[in-house]
């Protein structure tokens, strides 16, 4: 236990000097002083957005903290902890559309010509057809999709547990990242522990029907343990790698781990 006198003495000499210096610069303690301080504080709040955030040194600190937050989230992530599941009656209808473009620009992928490329640290690099993916054992989940914007919606997704898919392609599950490239030019990547999570799903259907174009036909990755922008749609290539792959939004400043 600290004694108050000890604390005061320990912090005294240098603090004392700083305070004295500061006081020399200070006018008499009047309401004017308060008003001026108040205005400075107000001015600080007005120096918003672009002004502060665009400063290079500020931005590099914020980016460094974001990388630090990636590591904290990886440490907090419990691979055995499941996201809550819900009854069908709680599904959000209609489930909101969200992408980096409008709903009228949704990519129409030809299912017959579709091939999923698999690459990187895997043993079997043969591309997959939609029929082959549909032939794999399927599971469904009714989970909450949480957007980085704050809103959330409950949906029902069906598909192949991603861990099962990684096993079938002989992925090196000691690798650090799984990278996703999409038909609409989108791109994101995730950590291996999340890739192996029981609820991480290579999704082929929505609410009992073939995955509609607006939700990512023919193939999306569904992870209730990550924010919406980490769940890629229209996936055409999957790569296992140890090199940090980044992502479409992540490269612009959104947090990479993006976990919930």
């Amino acid at each position: 236990m600290f004694k108050p006198s000890f604390v005061r003495r320990a912090s005294d000499p240098r603090a004392e000097a700083i305070v004295k210096d500061a006081l020399r610069e200070m006018p008499a303690p009047t309401r004017r002083l308060f008003l001026r301080r108040g205005l400075t504080l107000g001015g600080l709040t007005l120096l918003t957005g672009c002004a502060i955030t665009d400063d290079e040194s500020v931005q590099s600190v914020l980016t460094a903290v974001s990388r630090f937050n990636d590591r904290v989230q990886a440490a907090i992530f419990d691979p055995s902890l499941l996201a809550p599941t819900y009854p069908d009656s709680m599904i959000t209808r209609p489930f909101p559309f969200n992408a980096f473009y409008g709903e009228d620009e949704v990519r129409q992928v030809d299912g017959a010509a579709f091939r999923l490329d698999v690459g990187g640290l895997v043993r079997h690099r043969a591309p997959w057809t939609l029929a082959q993916l549909n032939a794999l054992p399927q599971v469904t989940q009714v989970t909450r999709h949480i957007c980085v914007e704050g809103w959330s919606a409950i949906g029902k997704w069906g598909g192949v547990p991603f861990a099962e898919f990684l096993r079938r392609v002989g992925a090196d599950t000691t690798a650090r990242y799984v990278d996703f490239r999409c038909a609409d030019g989108y791109h994101t990547s995730i950590d291996m522990p999340t890739a192996l999570h029981a609820q991480t799903q290579l999704t082929l259907s929505y609410d009992g029907a073939v995955l509609p174009a607006k939700y990512g036909f023919p193939l999306k990755l569904r992870m209730p343990t990550k924010l919406g922008y980490k769940n890629p749609k229209h996936i055409v290539a999957i790569r296992v790698t140890n090199t940090y792959p980044g992502g479409y939004w992540e490269d612009q400043g959104y947090n990479w781990f993006g976990g919930s």
Partner: peptide, 22 residues
């Protein structure tokens, strides 16, 4: 009003928020 907010856009605001939380 955006004029009294910090971050410039959502990603910037999230970065500030998750730095200041520490």
């Amino acid at each position: 009003p955006n004029e009294i907010t910090l971050g410039g856009w959502l990603a910037g605001a999230v970065q500030w928020h998750f730095a200041a939380m520490w």
